[in-house]
Design a protein around this nucleic acid. Sequence first.
DNA 1: ACCTCGACGTTATACGTAACACTTCGGCGA
DNA 2: TCGCCGAAGTGTTACGTATAACGTCGAGGT
Lengths: 345, 345
Amino acid sequence: MTSPQQPGPARPTSRDVARAAGVSQATVSLVLGGKWPGRVSEVTAQRVRDTAAELGYRPNLAARSLRLGRTRTALLVVPALTNEFFARVYAGAAALAAEHDFGVVLYPSPDGTGPARDPFASARAALDGVIASSMAADALDALHGADLPLVMLDSDPSDTGPAAHVNLDIADGMRQVTGHLLGLGHRRFLHLASAVGTWTFAVRAQALREALDAAGGATVRTVRAPLDVGAGREAAERALTAAGERPTAIICDDDILAAGACKAARRLGLRVPDELSVTGFDDLALATALEPELTTVGLPAEQVGERGMEALLAVLDGRPAEQRGLPVELVVRGSTAPPPATARA
Amino acid sequence: MTSPQQPGPARPTSRDVARAAGVSQATVSLVLGGKWPGRVSEVTAQRVRDTAAELGYRPNLAARSLRLGRTRTALLVVPALTNEFFARVYAGAAALAAEHDFGVVLYPSPDGTGPARDPFASARAALDGVIASSMAADALDALHGADLPLVMLDSDPSDTGPAAHVNLDIADGMRQVTGHLLGLGHRRFLHLASAVGTWTFAVRAQALREALDAAGGATVRTVRAPLDVGAGREAAERALTAAGERPTAIICDDDILAAGACKAARRLGLRVPDELSVTGFDDLALATALEPELTTVGLPAEQVGERGMEALLAVLDGRPAEQRGLPVELVVRGSTAPPPATARA
DNA sequence: ACCTCGACGTTATACGTAACACTTCGGCGA
DNA sequence: TCGCCGAAGTGTTACGTATAACGTCGAGGT
């Protein structure tokens, strides 16, 4: 029974409901749109609602969008969703959107392959606005080109293009980890970074530098690695075996890199945390799956999505979107400890 | 400069392009729709394309959908995307969809909380079809109610409701792990299951049972746990400390549970793999982040998404969707080894 | 000279909805 | 009795697109 065309009776329209209820299409629209008080009597309204339910009426969203010129749909532009952080951002955004009868559609930034698709073609509906992570670099130009309300996540606030910014207080997170490690007695650090050249890297690097300078006598070396476990391991392994005094703590920009650093340590026969401390960022599920559990900076990913959507809704309403850094929180677990006595000399 | 209304000039329509190019709107539609050969001269066509590009024309997708009655949009229904497996399914589906100028919108099955939203309300556009994972139990009823083409992922093939099924050959995966462990000499197993009561659990349990029966003299105990590391650890810890002979291998339905099992082992002072073998399912990034790396059954998640979309496109074209189990592959890593000599006696 | 026909377009229409402007009608104060 | 008002709806229109049906025009055949 392959029936490519109209199989059963076509979906009922508001006019069908109107006919069945003995009213005009306009009345159906009024009632179902919630605009009826004072315009339609309660009895009629109830009759309309009943027949609508009976026929299984669902408004045609394409027609509604066309009529209204708005779609109640936002585009969320993120790098790969396989990164738990962004999956959580999406979850937060989608949850808040649902509360406001909004939808969220994703632009999955192509993972390397793919000819850098058009973010707007992938969104099948017309869009009311865009929420974009600064990490999805490939799509950003196109977004600025479109004259849609744009909310940027974790991007340079001095960039005045976007209508609003939602930023994590990463600098504070960096200060917290660094302070924690300095307090334990560490003085030689390795910074395993993921996205050199971006704004968030600059913020992290500067916060780290300032914290170390304030402590005095501390050194740091920065190494870059693509965002996966294997790459993190290799980079860490290289840095740990390089000439010069070995660092006693590795500060990673991401839990995934931290996992790599832990593997590198194990390969080199360094015990974590006794001989080497490792910290991450994000507090992914991974952080508590590892042994020892990872000391990391917890980022409220869901909140990032929520606030992004909140800001977008505000902009769409003509309200000002309040810009505020989201607080982050150091989560101390088992991957950090004082440096070995030999290194403290 | 908050401008809730029309800020700049409204987006150009096909009529604007027509005016600028000195042709009728219909011609613009023909040219841009690719239907021009034989109906519009090459020069005119080129002129239309140029002016369209110049004005930055983008077709209004709502209007197109309304006109065509099709949206080229599919709904993908999955449990939480924070599960890397489903994020990969989405990636696969979205990639293939993009090749066919299709879009994929997600129904993020509410994570416990949330009043079980309407899957169709969350999709803002009208839909051409649905691809649903059997794991998103809460939404399935509503999906069967709608008369949309439905492709089910990993669900009972004897359920004839859906238009097509895309299944992983999980039974084979289970046979492979079991065979691997039996070959190493294991005879006492713990099955750490995630979704008792579902079809995939039934398949796994039966395959496991059959493989063990064929070997003879092997025993298994099944324990259930919610799908997260902590729950897996607790369940495994309880089972490992229970009365009776301790199992020498834990077969987990998921890498996440396997991570929990590894933690349980470490807590109890059991070394993996020397004193306890652990296997997972899915081959997530987590599998290689752990130490030792996890022996697991690799599932082609992206392919699941691709095949699902492929099947849906076929159904929409009136073609038959070929039903085939996707092959899975045992990936042997460091978390499995022969059981300790004491247990082999 | 008339008809045909292909090439190249154009005109007109419908998709389903929301909202504006309008009608109908009983009641009510002057 | 007239005029007016509010309640309760209805008629109509427009949103932007795709396509079926129709027009025009010149070349070529008879």
